[in-house]
C-alpha cells in the first residue's frame, strides 16, 4: 500500500532559506545545503524547494543551487518558483529536480500544465495553488500578491484536468501561523479530485497532521515553520502518526 507522506517545505531567497507568515516578512533560516543534509538524515519522504525570488522577480530559477542541493538529496525533490515554460522545466529536471511545482503560470495559462505533463509525464508535474479563505477562497498568484478570478475548488479541478500529477494546496491565511490546516477546504477538494493531494499552510503540531490525514484524507502534509522554528522533526511526526494508525513510511 502507498504510504502517506510528510514533506518539509523550504523557501529559498538570496542563498538562504526563509520562512514567513501569511507569505510576508520572511525570516532567514539557515543555508540551503545544510538544511537539505539535515532533512535527508531525518528521513523525510520528499522535499519541496521553492525559489521565491524566481517567482516574484520574474527571473529563472537558480539552477546551480538546485544542482548542489540534489547532490545531498536522496529523496524525491520538488522544485518550484518562476516556472513559466517547458525549457525551465527541462533545465530543472536536468539539474536534479525530480518534480516541478507550477503555480502562477499554471493559473494564468493552464495549457502550460497540459504541455508539461505531455512532455515530461504527469508524475513530475505538481500543481501548486494558494488561496485566501478571507477573500472568498479566491486563488492568489505571484507569491500571494495577485488575486485571481477563480476560487480554489474551481482551479483545483482545472489543474487536474490539465494533467497535473499531484496538487499542493496552501492556505495563505494559515501560513506560518501554526493554527492547523484548513481541513474544511481540503475535504471539499479531496472529494472533487482523484490525483494525490498535499495539504499545506498552518501546521503547528503533530495533531494538526493527524487531523488533516484523518478528516480530509489527504495523501501528504507539507510543513515548514514547525520544523524550522521548533524542536519538532519529521521523524517524530511520523512516529506519532504511525502510532495513531496513519500509514506512513517508518
Amino acid at each position: 500500500m502507498l504510504k502517506r507522506r510528510v514533506i518539509p517545505t523550504l523557501l529559498f531567497k538570496d542563498n538562504v532559506l526563509v520562512k514567513g507568515k501569511n507569505f510576508l516578512s520572511n525570516r532567514p533560516v539557515v543555508s540551503a545545503i545544510e538544511s537539505v543534509k539535515t532533512y535527508d538524515l531525518r528521513e523525510v519522504d520528499e522535499l519541496i524547494f521553492n525559489d521565491i525570488l524566481a517567482s516574484t522577480k520574474n527571473i529563472e530559477p537558480d539552477y546551480n543551487m538546485i544542482s548542489e542541493i540534489s547532490k545531498e538529496c536522496f529523496v524525491p525533490l520538488v522544485v518550484g518558483g518562476g516556472i513559466k515554460n517547458l525549457k525551465i522545466i527541462e533545465n530543472l529536471l536536468r539539474n536534479g529536480a525530480d518534480k516541478v511545482s507550477i503555480n502562477t503560470w499554471g493559473v494564468k495559462d493552464p495549457d502550460l500544465l497540459k504541455q508539461a505533463s505531455k512532455e515530461f509525464g504527469s508524475q513530475c508535474i505538481v500543481g501548486s495553488l494558494d488561496y485566501k479563505k478571507s477573500k472568498n477562497n479566491k486563488v492568489f498568484t505571484i507569491c500571494g500578491t495577485q488575486i485571481e478570478n477563480y476560487n480554489i475548488l474551481e482551479m483545483a479541478e482545472i489543474f487536474e484536468q490539465n494533467g497535473c500529477g499531484e496538487l499542493i494546496i496552501t492556505s495563505i491565511d494559515n501560513d506560518g501561523n501554526l493554527c492547523g490546516y484548513d481541513v474544511d477546504i481540503l475535504q471539499k477538494i479531496k472529494k472533487k479530485i482523484k490525483i494525490p493531494l498535499i495539504a499545506s499552510g498552518g501546521c503547528g503540531s503533530y495533531d494538526h497532521m493527524l487531523e488533516v490525514f484523518k478528516d480530509a484524507n489527504v495523501d501528504a502534509v507539507a510543513a515548514a515553520s514547525i520544523f524550522h522554528f521548533s524542536k519538532m522533526t519529521p521523524r517524530e511526526a511520523k512516529k506519532y502518526l504511525f502510532s495513531k494508525g496513519i500509514n506512513v513510511r517508518n
Partner: peptide, 9 residues
C-alpha cells in the same frame, strides 16, 4: 490512479 507514485513496501 496511475502512475503508481510514492513510497510503497
Amino acid at each position: 490512479i496511475l502512475p503508481h507514485i510514492g513510497w510503497n513496501s
